[in-house]
Design a protein around this nucleic acid. Structure first.
Lengths: 148, 148
DNA sequence: TGCAATTAAATTGTATACAATTTAATTTTA
DNA sequence: TAAAATTAAATTGTATACAATTTAATTGCA
């Protein structure tokens, strides 16, 4: 097998598919005024508000270089607030405002809309999610070992 | 199932996994002085030099907004050249220079190194590639229909 | 033919990603 | 306990992505 062929790479289909799926979110997310990474941040915060930037970054696998400006934009729009933790002033806590909480209702239709517009079967979605989540997990564990 | 939970999304594991895998390429690609998207461009050109920007964009699913500055950087480093097509001056043809061709030899070890550092089994790699490539194909066909 | 529509790249503007550095606060330790 | 090490965010700098616009060339059609 010609290893340097694009079609034989794992990385390319994954990279292209990820971007493609993201692009399907755009017109839908536009209606509630969020970008795709902003939507991911909001999903985490809808599950649990009041997380630190570090914890948010851990769950999304994003660093403060990406999150800081993104969170600032959401704060400007009064979707969330940033508060320094009293006990440790280094830590910034991200909490949803009423506006941010309310956005959840508007977002509740999104997963269904995406599934529909991608026209993938339940099985395809599930298989890919399981496989991707599994590998992600494995890579993360590998990195954890490597860092200790 | 709580549809708005991050763990139940397809999009997130795919997005995170794609970035994670890309990040594993970085230290390896650094040695030959390429970024990840630049490496993808080079893989296409090593297979077939002399493509138009449009065709390159089609194969990589990237538009000229992304490719133009990227190609300019590679041209500055004399890895490729851009030539206007005589028969149609709108078209820019991208051709590898000797330097660009030679880079292939340096890159030939990369797929093996990646496979090794990701520590994924052949089966995992193959399954994910097949599934991702399949879905990508399906989505592309869907879009093709939609645009006609 | 001549001008409107189309097309291919490039450019512009906005929003990530992420490495590396900086800043400020907290811990550790000599 | 005071300086050194560590930590959490923010900032800086570089490189994508991609929508939208612009520019220049080519086609199509009235």
């Amino acid at each position: 097998m010609e290893l340097l062929k694009l079609s034989n790479q794992l990385c390319f289909p994954l990279y292209a598919l990820s971007r493609k799926i993201t692009s399907h979110y755009l017109p839908i997310l536009e209606k509630i005024g969020l970008t795709y990474p902003q939507y991911l941040v909001m999903m985490v915060l809808w599950e649990e508000s009041g997380l630190s930037v570090k914890e948010l970054g851990h769950r999304l696998m994003l660093d403060s270089g990406t999150l800081s400006p993104l969170l600032k934009k959401l704060e400007d729009r009064e979707i969330l607030v940033r508060t320094r933790l009293k006990e440790d002033e280094r830590v910034v806590i991200i909490s949803l405002t009423g506006t941010g909480e309310k956005l959840r209702e508007k977002a509740s239709e999104i997963p269904e809309q995406i599934k529909c517009c991608l026209d993938l079967s339940d099985k395809e979605l599930r298989d890919l999610r399981t496989l991707a989540a599994g590998l992600l997990d494995k890579i993360n564990k590998l990195e954890a070992v490597h860092n200790n």
